[in-house]
Design a protein around this nucleic acid. Structure first.
Lengths: 171, 171
DNA sequence: GTGAAAGTGTAATACTATAACATCAAATTT
DNA sequence: AAATTTGATGTTATAGTATTACACTTTCAC
């Protein structure tokens, strides 16, 4: 069977490509919009993209302090990372996963969209989807209730393909 | 047009009925399952049901301490209310709204179900929906990614019918 | 009744997020 | 280029949300 690009993050893949492409997109998007992707913001974006696992703000803060050139000499506080995350979210480069209090790089930063995620409870990988049928049903449901839909978040929890097969291996 | 029962909570209604029916359902469900709806748990459920607005755990704690017979003599801490909420959630009597860190009474406690909400950003009312099409699309999306869907949460944010018309009144 | 299990009390603490104000850097104006 | 303004970051403190750990009590099964 052909692997759908949708669940690529659940497979082994060349993650360097993910990071590179995310950084390139971010550069492009920010210069188009005339907003500044400062070194700090870029570093936070890079940290968020180190994996497909959502990371908490304090984890990012710690890594920023310990693993990055930026944190070498500065004493960083929570507002620093929260502000960077807020900027990245405004630009649609990062999403927050409400059920995890954690942040993840946006996999479709080009256009604005609702937030649909598949979240594996074992490997903690989160995959972002774009689904027209899901978007359509949400619109239908909201319309039926005469509710003006300004934004939506869908978080689907369960086991990803890899963790499913591993789980069945160990029965 | 006929008002759908779905968005009843957005309309004026006899909320006493909501509370009574929720408590009756809870009694029934708990006795059927052989679990104990203690006075504390019942009080927390009642507080959650005082409105259709999700409430934070610390708000509930404060009300429990100040407004209920239970809180009169005891000195209550956060674990007390969190444990009651955990129990009520396990029994499907209460849901947590992740985007608000808040809790709301379940409007369909009879059967297990996924969590679909319309959340008004003005009046803060949250309405729970059961939508077969939405359930079906989520299943389809998960299946397509070979993802085992164990639970899902959909939080749709915007303006409810009442707040929409009020907003347009004041233009 | 006695013991086991479930429920609650209590103190301490961990985790998540923001407010407020100071400082610094970049861009714009003059 | 100096002055001005704006945006970005540093820093301290605090607010808000949730859990751990252990003591005590109540309920239920036997």
């Amino acid at each position: 069977m052909v692997t759908s690009p949708k669940n690529l993050a659940f497979q082994h893949h060349d993650h360097t490509q993910c990071i590179d492409s995310a950084l390139a997109s971010a550069q492009l998007v920010c210069s188009e919009r005339g907003v500044r992707l400062t070194p700090l913001r870029q570093e936070v974006l890079q940290l968020v993209w180190q994996s497909h696992k959502p990371l908490g703000a304090y984890t990012l803060l710690e890594q920023l302090a310990n693993q990055s050139a930026i944190g070498e000499q500065r004493k960083l506080g929570p507002p620093t990372v929260y502000r960077a995350l807020e900027f990245l979210r405004e630009q649609g480069l990062v999403h927050r996963i409400d059920s995890l209090n954690a942040f993840i790089g946006c996999q479709h930063p080009q256009q604005p969209h609702q937030r649909f995620f598949l979240i594996c409870r074992l490997c903690e990988t989160a995959v972002e989807l774009i689904s027209d049928p899901l978007t359509a049903v949400i619109k239908t449901v909201a319309d039926a209730a005469q509710f003006s839909n300004e934004g939506a978040s869908v978080e689907i929890t369960g086991l990803c393909p890899s963790c499913r097969s591993e789980a069945s291996d160990h029965v």
